[in-house]
Simulated assay, not measured.
Amino acid sequence: MWVMERFLSSVIQRGQSGLLRRSLRGSLPELELRYLQCTCCWRSLIPVAGFETLNATLSSSEPCKDDGGKPLDACYTSEQRTVILQLLNNASLAELASIKLLRGRKSTNIVEHRSKHGPFKSLESVVDKERKVRIQLAKFIKPEVDRSWLEEASSIVSIVCGTNKIAWAHVDRQMMVLDWQHQDCPNFLKGTYMASAYLNDVSAVVSLLPPASFYLIEKSSISIQNTTLFPIMAHMRTVEAMLFALLEPKIAPPEPNIPPRVLNMMRTAVGRHFGLMVGESRTSGAQTVRQLMAESVTQKLPRINFPQELLLRYRNHFQMGSRRGGEELCDALLQAVAFYELLCEC
């Protein structure tokens, strides 16, 4: 509950005036941070001077140790509860999504709940709503791994296989894109699917991948009942198996305290996270990637940050009608963003 307490305390700042105050008379005329005291213990000071400082604090703050299992509403004064609920019940989707802890589905869930059931009447009802919509790790990550291993990852490499290329995005925990590219694989879907030819292409890609805590390989959602797509499914499974074999370190026998380094991420989970699903089919993510790239330049706290070099390289790569074949690049980036955001929601 402490994360929600920290977030709700941050919301109060929007209802307060004078987030910066001058220092006491006789001291240097500099601006100082104002603080809110946590009413659980009256010792934890929560800075409220700007969303940049606030978001960093929310991510690193320690939980209050004296909450004693109290209801969330009891942790705030009546005035604070009024301010928080007023903002949660009236803020737009964009305003809610600008708060780091509400990115992804959380802000959408709040707006949808307001539309269907009316305004929130208590802070505990906000927490209850979030508990109901949490996504279990097992629903989008295979094989199942301990959550703490994923949270300790310093960076991930998101890998997506296409019909003639493999793309990857290397993203660290600070949501900075470290590497983002694709490699043509000329032997894919050629002739009789020669294993040696496939291995040459996949090995060439693996040699280019940067080191990371985990490698996430997209798990396609092609149904085995669709026999017309069986050649594509066989191709995807072949490449996936080779990536697992080449990237996973050889440990015999496996040690229980060492997590698997290569994981599958469900393609449909990424599609639902970004609203790209139409029925059981997933649409292009090019527009979403263009939006993420634009936000990285125009917003102080974008969902993901790009180095200038990558922005210049791909600024015209995902335009409507482009034949550059960037779908795999889009999917690799979106998979990395969805991984971190879904991990926060679990």
Results as ranks from 00 to 15, higher is better:
Met1Ala: 09
Met4Gln: 10
Ser10Trp: 03
Val11Gln: 06
Val11Arg: 03
Gln13Ile: 05
Arg14Lys: 14
Gly15Phe: 05
Gln16Gly: 02
Leu20Trp: 06
Arg25Thr: 09
Leu31Glu: 14
Glu32Asp: 01
Glu32Met: 11
Gln37Pro: 15
Cys38Ser: 14
Val48Gly: 00
Glu52Ser: 13
Ala56Val: 01
Thr57Val: 10
Leu58Ile: 13
Ser59Pro: 00
Ser60Trp: 04
Gly69Ser: 10
Glu79Thr: 11
Leu85Arg: 07
Leu87Val: 14
Ile99Trp: 12
Lys100Leu: 10
Lys100Asp: 12
Ser107Leu: 08
Thr108Val: 11
Val111Trp: 02
Arg114Val: 02
Glu124Leu: 04
Ile135Asp: 04
Ile135Phe: 02
Phe140Thr: 06
Pro143Glu: 05
Val145Asn: 06
Arg147Leu: 04
Arg147Val: 04
Ser148Met: 09
Ser148Ala: 14
Leu150Gly: 09
Ile156Asp: 01
Val157Met: 10
Ile159His: 02
Gly162Tyr: 01
Ala167Ile: 01
Trp168Asp: 02
Asp172Phe: 01
Met176Arg: 12
Trp180Leu: 03
Asn187His: 15
Phe188Trp: 03
Lys190Gln: 14
Lys190Cys: 13
Leu199Gly: 00
Val202Glu: 03
Ser203Trp: 02
Val206Pro: 00
Pro211Phe: 07
Phe214Gly: 06
Phe214Arg: 04
Lys219Glu: 15
Ser220His: 11
Ile222Asp: 08
Ile224Tyr: 08
Phe230Leu: 15
His235Lys: 10
Val239Leu: 13
Met242Tyr: 13
Ala245Thr: 14
Ile251Gln: 14
Pro253Ser: 10
Pro254Cys: 08
Glu255Val: 15
Glu255Leu: 15
Asn257Met: 14
Ile258Gln: 07
Val262Met: 08
Met265Ile: 15
Gly271Arg: 00
Arg272Ser: 09
His273Cys: 07
Gly275Ala: 12
Glu280Ile: 10
Gly285Pro: 04
Thr288Asn: 09
Gln291Trp: 13
Ser296Met: 06
Ser296Tyr: 04
Arg303Thr: 15
Asn305Trp: 01
His317Val: 02
Gly321Tyr: 10
Cys330Asp: 00
Cys330Trp: 01
Ala336Cys: 02
Cys344Trp: 03
Cys344Pro: 00
Glu345Ser: 11
